Amino acid sequence: MSASAPESEALATEVPPVSDSQTLRRAFKDLRDGFAQRELWLSLGWQDIKQRYRRSVIGPFWITIATGVQATAIGILYAALLDIPLDQFLPYVTVGLIVWNLINASIIEGSEVFISNEGLIKQLPSALSVHIYRLVWRQLLFFAHNLVIYVIMVVAFGVWRDLSWASLAAIPAVALLVLNAVWVSIVFGIFATRYRDIAPILSSMTLLLFVLTPIMWTTQSLVAQGGAVADRARIAELNPLYHYLEIVRAPMIGQPQQLYHWYIVLGITVVGWALALVALRKYRARVPYWV
């Protein structure tokens, strides 16, 4: 028997099932599934370091040596130019470079995270976030190696005398940096995969931000000069990376901590993660085709 007219019209107007590939639920699922595969990205991140320094005697400690040499050269030069005691300025520069390396890698390598993992994305059935976690884990290992310089500096320059229980604030500050590194890699990674001009633009921008961020210079030294120079020094407050740097560096070298830096970083973190979730929701399924 054929269906009646009302039944035929109902079948014809029935709405087809909607795919949930572009839903927040799938975005959160990707993040959860990727984290659940931690044995994979922990192993891949460690293999990245071993591969980079294969046949090297001291391995990833070359990063530590390079950072130490750079910090020493900048510290000696700019301490003389800015007329700041070396035992005060060198710890400031050293911790600044250590933290900056983590921030810089999150932006530069994060923008190429999916492009550089094209083979794995097309062949390995895993969550897209696995590659993000792998990148952040690798940079954390480099950060841990560079902390050797910090320990030496704390002893050599007597920084330990200025440290207190408040210095433990550096631990949640680093955790906050890691959270930001994840969303930065997601957002820049997705859009740089679609638009390949974004990666070189970000590379140029980070170079500019390195100069504009108080790493080789201090806002205090400029403010002390007074006048127009002091007013220009406050422009540093418009640089978001300055606030990320301060929440880690200040407690690590025993300097007074300003609460507003935390408020700004927390605000950017919330907005950044909102952007990351939107990007994952809308474009996660397209990344394998873009690479």
Results as ranks from 00 to 15, higher is better:
107 I>K: 02
148 V>M: 08
104 N>V: 11
116 S>E: 15
205 M>R: 03
210 F>G: 05
183 W>S: 04
189 G>L: 05
54 R>K: 07
252 M>Y: 06
21 S>F: 13
286 R>T: 14
157 F>Y: 08
134 R>K: 11
19 S>W: 03
30 D>V: 04
244 Y>A: 06
86 L>D: 02
189 G>W: 01
105 A>I: 09
263 Y>M: 15
40 L>C: 06
288 P>Y: 00
4 S>Y: 04
187 V>F: 02
227 G>P: 00
116 S>K: 14
69 V>C: 04
91 P>V: 01
257 Q>D: 11
130 V>F: 01
257 Q>H: 11
48 D>N: 00
249 R>E: 01
166 A>P: 15
103 I>P: 04
151 V>G: 12
212 L>Y: 00
176 L>T: 12
44 L>I: 09
211 V>D: 08
7 E>M: 12
101 N>P: 12
11 L>C: 11
187 V>H: 07
170 A>D: 05
288 P>R: 03
254 G>T: 04
142 F>M: 15
145 H>W: 14
70 Q>N: 15
136 V>Y: 00
97 L>K: 10
10 A>H: 08
90 L>W: 09
108 I>F: 05
263 Y>N: 14
124 L>G: 01
53 Y>P: 01
205 M>F: 12
134 R>F: 12
207 L>A: 14
284 R>Q: 04
139 Q>G: 09
107 I>N: 00
4 S>C: 03
256 P>D: 07
6 P>D: 01
259 L>I: 14
131 H>P: 00
1 M>Q: 13
173 A>V: 09
127 A>F: 03
68 G>I: 02
238 L>Q: 07
109 E>P: 02
226 G>V: 05
88 Q>D: 12
158 G>L: 00
132 I>P: 08
176 L>M: 13
222 L>M: 12
264 I>K: 09
40 L>W: 11
212 L>G: 04
272 G>W: 04
272 G>Q: 06
173 A>C: 07
7 E>Q: 10
13 T>I: 13
69 V>D: 02
238 L>P: 07
119 G>C: 07
277 L>M: 06
197 D>T: 03
1 M>V: 14
283 Y>Q: 05
159 V>M: 10
82 L>P: 05
259 L>S: 14
147 L>Y: 07
26 R>Q: 12
148 V>P: 08
63 I>G: 14
286 R>M: 13
141 L>I: 15
282 K>Q: 13
238 L>C: 06
185 S>D: 04
181 A>Q: 05
199 A>I: 09
174 V>M: 04
138 R>K: 07
155 V>S: 13
173 A>G: 05
92 Y>L: 07
163 L>V: 06
131 H>R: 10
88 Q>R: 13
212 L>W: 02
49 I>G: 06
178 V>N: 10
287 V>G: 04
2 S>D: 15
195 Y>H: 01
120 L>R: 09
9 E>R: 14
16 P>I: 12
278 V>R: 13
166 A>D: 15
6 P>S: 03
47 Q>H: 07
77 L>D: 11
127 A>D: 05
286 R>I: 14
161 R>Q: 12
122 K>H: 10
121 I>R: 05
213 T>M: 00
209 L>S: 05
199 A>T: 09
87 D>K: 13
267 G>C: 00
